[in-house]
């Protein structure tokens, strides 16, 4: 009975993160995403915008006795095979580049790699259209 109810109420979530990796709201975003999947729901896309792009940065070094959120995101997205999209314009502005962009702008610093993907704001709108609910973390 419970399983049937779960399936009937299953939702498609789009999740947008606007705060940096060290912000409590970013930690809540990951906890929400994990709980959504555990509850039988679907995540159509995780979209990282504004300072949220820092969640995708390999260059973040977290003190050993603190939660390493970028690492947890990476593990979660890889294991669950999710679509983790980082806004390319917001990432460029903040120096969070993948190999392709570092090459394009002749920079030595590469901070993003798979499973993360750099793409445009169209991916946010696309996720909004596809999802039943958009859940935002770390906005103003």
């Amino acid at each position: 009975m419970a399983a049937v109810l779960l399936i009937e109420s299953a939702m498609k979530f789009a999740i947008a993160v606007f705060s940096a990796a060290h912000a409590p709201s970013s930690r809540r975003a990951l906890l929400f995403a994990q709980a959504a999947l555990a509850g039988g729901h679907e995540i159509v896309r995780l979209f990282f915008y504004q300072d949220g792009v820092y969640n995708a940065s390999d260059a973040v070094v977290t003190p050993q006795d603190e939660t390493d959120l970028p690492k947890q995101w990476r593990t979660f997205i890889t294991e669950q095979n999710l679509d983790g999209v980082v806004c390319i314009a917001a990432a460029l502005r903040r120096g969070v580049l993948n190999t392709e962009e570092a090459g394009r702008y002749q920079r030595d610093a590469v901070a993003v790699s798979a499973p993360w993907e750099l793409s445009g704001l169209g991916q946010l709108h696309d996720a909004v259209q596809d999802a039943d609910r958009l859940i935002c973390f770390g906005g103003a």
């Binding site: 915008y49 314009a89 917001a90 704001l121 946010l124 103003a140």
Partner: peptide, 14 residues
């Protein structure tokens, strides 16, 4: 900061 511009960019993209 870039917040106002980045909010506007979502609107323009839409």
């Amino acid at each position: 900061g870039p917040g106002a511009r980045e909010a506007l960019d979502i609107v323009l993209a839409g």
